[in-house]
């Protein structure tokens, strides 16, 4: 068992001085090694960091695959995807596909929800923005007025075709009903005539 030894005070005095000199030497040896060693700072805009695969950064969006089904928007836990469509059902034109990066938490649920693989998260990370409006990124290709007019005309044409087809069907149905009714009336009349015989 080691107990605190009572040292000679003179010896203790010189031991203290030696300890002070030695510890200073030891510490300064360590710091000078760091001084000449490699630095950990990365000069960011000049040198880029290596992003590990699987990093979830800014979305990549393929408009040609997107059908505007809003599955991603429904899956989003923070409601950061805004979609605006022209038309309904399958005949839609995508006017807006916005992601608000002030809200987005890069959870990848939107990409998982997408049935057409139109949305994925890339390895891009530089997302700094100066204002709240800048954080809102527009992914859809901006559509010109002519395009929209053309699409509206297409929609109208399809609508007209659909209505025409419907009207034709209706007319057919009416004609068929009419024929049936006539047939039934004929039958009834025949039935009334039968007992007289």
């Amino acid at each position: 068992m080691k107990t605190a030894e009572k040292k000679n005070p003179v010896a203790q005095y010189f031991a203290d001085i030696w300890a002070g000199i030695y510890t200073t030497y030891a510490g300064m040896k360590i710091t000078i090694e760091y001084f000449f060693g490699k630095k950990v700072t990365m000069r960011y805009p000049e040198e880029k960091p290596v992003i590990p695969p699987g990093h979830r950064g800014v979305h990549v969006y393929d408009e040609s695959k997107c059908t505007g089904c809003r599955a991603c928007a429904r899956a989003c836990p923070v409601d950061c995807i805004g979609i605006d469509l022209l038309g309904r059902g399958r005949d839609v034109m995508l006017l807006q596909f916005d992601i608000d990066y002030a809200r987005c938490l890069f959870c990848n649920l939107c990409a998982e929800a997408c049935p057409f693989n139109a949305l994925a998260l890339s390895e891009k990370y530089n997302l700094a923005c100066g204002s709240r409006g800048d954080c809102l990124r527009h992914f859809a290709r901006p559509k010109s007025q002519e395009e929209m007019d053309e699409f509206k005309a297409l929609l109208a044409r399809k609508e007209a075709e659909r209505k025409e087809a419907q009207a034709k069907k209706e007319a057919e149905r009416k004609a068929r009903e009419e024929a049936e009714r006539k047939a039934r009336e004929e039958a009834e009349r025949n039935a009334q005539e039968q007992p007289e015989q």
Binding site: F35, G37, R43
Partner: peptide, 13 residues
């Protein structure tokens, strides 16, 4: 600068 180097960073640059 020297303080930065000793602390394994670069200091003002």
């Amino acid at each position: 600068r020297i303080a930065g180097f000793i602390q394994v960073r670069l200091g003002p640059n």
